[in-house]
């Protein structure tokens, strides 16, 4: 049922996207443009959080995104805040959880002059990201809520391939990044309490990001990829169909592995 829902949302997003293709005849020059991004779509997650359960939880939900995308002569800057809600369940225990995820990115990519001349444009860059995630198990009591945070620095790569189809201009591409260094927090070993909140009656928001650890390859791996199909409109605005995917594995005291997917349709408003 969850997969059907996810597929349905994906098809809806795709059809909305293609329905919009007829609105433009030619693209504008994208140099030195800034766009404000709003998007919505469906999402799907796989989770094994051994702080909660050894079982695989998977399920669908929804996503929204806000962001900005700035293209200059020599570089591109992109920032975004994406929120996901999912309702995964275990096919073995039939238990359910809610997951809430807020993830922010700032990315910069540089245009390498000799690569920009080619049809396939490769743009190296970096990705700074922050993530806050809450997993709430619906059948647990004292340990029903698990919160974790991440702050990552990652080299990133943008691949873009403009092309023309039906006498209209499109751009197909991907952003991908793998963090080199990450600062991560997880709850205490056998509790949902955070180390920094011990001895505090009122938990402060910053407690969730204190007393974490700096991690890298060996005990932490994350691969994020975003595929896109961009369609510039005549008036300088645009539409983008995105598929986001990331896989994360953190060998903490309670290991956690997640795979997260979203398909989103976004509008680009020129500002």
């Amino acid at each position: 049922m969850n997969k059907l829902y996810f597929l349905g949302l994906s098809l809806l997003a795709t059809s909305l996207s293609f329905a919009s293709f007829g609105q433009a005849q030619k693209s504008n020059d994208k140099k030195n443009q800034t766009h404000f991004i709003t998007g919505i779509g469906g999402s799907y997650v796989n989770i094994i959080d051994e702080g909660i359960s050894p079982l695989l939880y998977d399920g669908s939900g929804g996503s929204v995104i806000l962001g900005h995308f700035q293209e200059k002569m020599n570089n591109l800057n992109a920032s975004s805040v994406k929120f996901d809600f999912n309702n995964p369940s275990s096919s073995i225990s039939n238990a359910e959880m809610y997951t809430f995820r807020l993830e922010g990115h700032f990315q910069r990519y540089w245009k390498v002059s000799n690569l920009e001349e080619k049809k396939l444009k490769l743009r190296p860059g970096f990705d700074l990201s922050a993530k806050w995630a809450l997993r709430q198990h619906l059948n647990f009591t004292n340990n029903s809520q698990h919160i974790e945070t991440r702050f990552s620095v990652a080299p990133a790569l943008m691949i873009a391939r403009p092309f023309e189809l039906w006498e209209r201009n499109f751009e197909l591409g991907a952003f991908t990044s793998i963090p080199l260094l990450t600062y991560a927090t997880r709850p205490l070993f056998a509790s949902t309490r955070f180390p920094a909140s011990v001895n505090k009656e009122e938990i402060e928001f910053l407690d969730y990001v204190k007393e974490g650890e700096i991690i890298s390859f060996g005990n932490y791996f994350k691969w994020s990829t975003q595929f896109f199909l961009f369609y510039p409109l005549k008036n300088g605005n645009g539409l983008r169909l995105d598929y986001f995917w990331n896989y994360e594995s953190y060998k903490a005291q309670n290991p956690v592995r997640t795979g997260e997917h979203s398909i989103m349709i976004s509008t680009f408003f020129k500002i």
Binding site: P54, I92, N94, N139, S144
Partner: peptide, 12 residues
């Protein structure tokens, strides 16, 4: 304080 967990066969 008791905490919950699940076994690989789904028992809680």
């Amino acid at each position: 304080l008791p905490i919950n967990d699940e076994l690989p066969n789904g028992w809680r």
